[in-house]
Design a binder for these strands. Sequence first.
DNA 1: CTTTCTTGTCTAAGATCCTAAACACCATGA
DNA 2: TCATGGTGTTTAGGATCTTAGACAAGAAAG
Lengths: 182, 182
Amino acid sequence: MSVDVGARLRGIRTTFGLSQRELARRAGVTNGLISLIEQNRVSPSVSSLKKVLDGVPMSLAEFFTLDLSATPRAFFSADDLVELGNPQVSLRLVAAQRPGRQLTLLHERYAAGAATGEEMLTHRGEEAGVVIRGRIELTVGGAVRVLGPGEAYYFASQLPHRFRNVGREACEIISACTPPTF
Amino acid sequence: MSVDVGARLRGIRTTFGLSQRELARRAGVTNGLISLIEQNRVSPSVSSLKKVLDGVPMSLAEFFTLDLSATPRAFFSADDLVELGNPQVSLRLVAAQRPGRQLTLLHERYAAGAATGEEMLTHRGEEAGVVIRGRIELTVGGAVRVLGPGEAYYFASQLPHRFRNVGREACEIISACTPPTF
DNA sequence: CTTTCTTGTCTAAGATCCTAAACACCATGA
DNA sequence: TCATGGTGTTTAGGATCTTAGACAAGAAAG
């Protein structure tokens, strides 16, 4: 019952849209090594696995903690929000089943046509939000979806992501991110 | 800025009270390898590091997540409990700063002289508690302390631990443990 | 003081990892 | 059709990890 290092690395690399050569260049190793590791033809040393993950970037702890088979949901329909409050005070919670949440709320507003930029964002922490008004196109990893009022998102900020307001109306989002940055 | 695998392994091994040879025997590797890894003379392959950790036992994710320098507090004085409630409803929270808690409460009672056994316990999950009446001697890792009424504990159950009622009076504890076992 | 057992360290030799380079395949165009 | 640039794979050889066994130091008992 060994750890499938190869499948994990391949899943991460493709999620980030990198070729073996590109990841190898960033990590300072050869493309052949990436290939051998992904095929489980070798069990890499900790030091070289760390070099490879530095090219993503991702820590060893995150690498071994990651569960590819149980990828957390990235999108939630309006009905998926969990009602926590009572008839007097309504509290609708996003990703209620997700353990270890530690977020703070923000209020964002995207003008018509606005976006977070051409490049995909990728940083530490987690972020989540609810669309209040308008429509927003959200790309997370390989998945793209246009979210409307009442729909929500929740994903790890390490996944490459981008917001684009593809409508003619301004878009408002109640969003949250982890304390340190952003 | 590399990961100090050697120091981590040595810290874990000594915490569990194992010699290099004993850990090597359980893991199915040689004692020399343990020695070389702990001195950072080599960077072990993932497969052999996994074999070594299986002898503890501990997962790779737990190994790399562990932060030896910032070992969470194991003991809390009565004053260290965080008051969460209001003047009407008083809620005193144990280890409030600890992230990702998911515990359920129990009520334990130790007769005079009772103990959890000669062997140290070690299992998955986390456990915590507050002493209500009497006194209890608690050993966690290398640390030992006698706790009295109003004092509390919180530690990872993987750390070898043992409860002993060293007084003449019965001891009551409100304790909590993670869902799966115990 | 010896003997014996334990501990952690060190050293050649064998096994495995890692690199450099070539290879095969699939596109896209000239 | 033939180049060009991209992908992942394979292989020989040098670098590194891992083993088996010896070594030195300390503790406990005779």
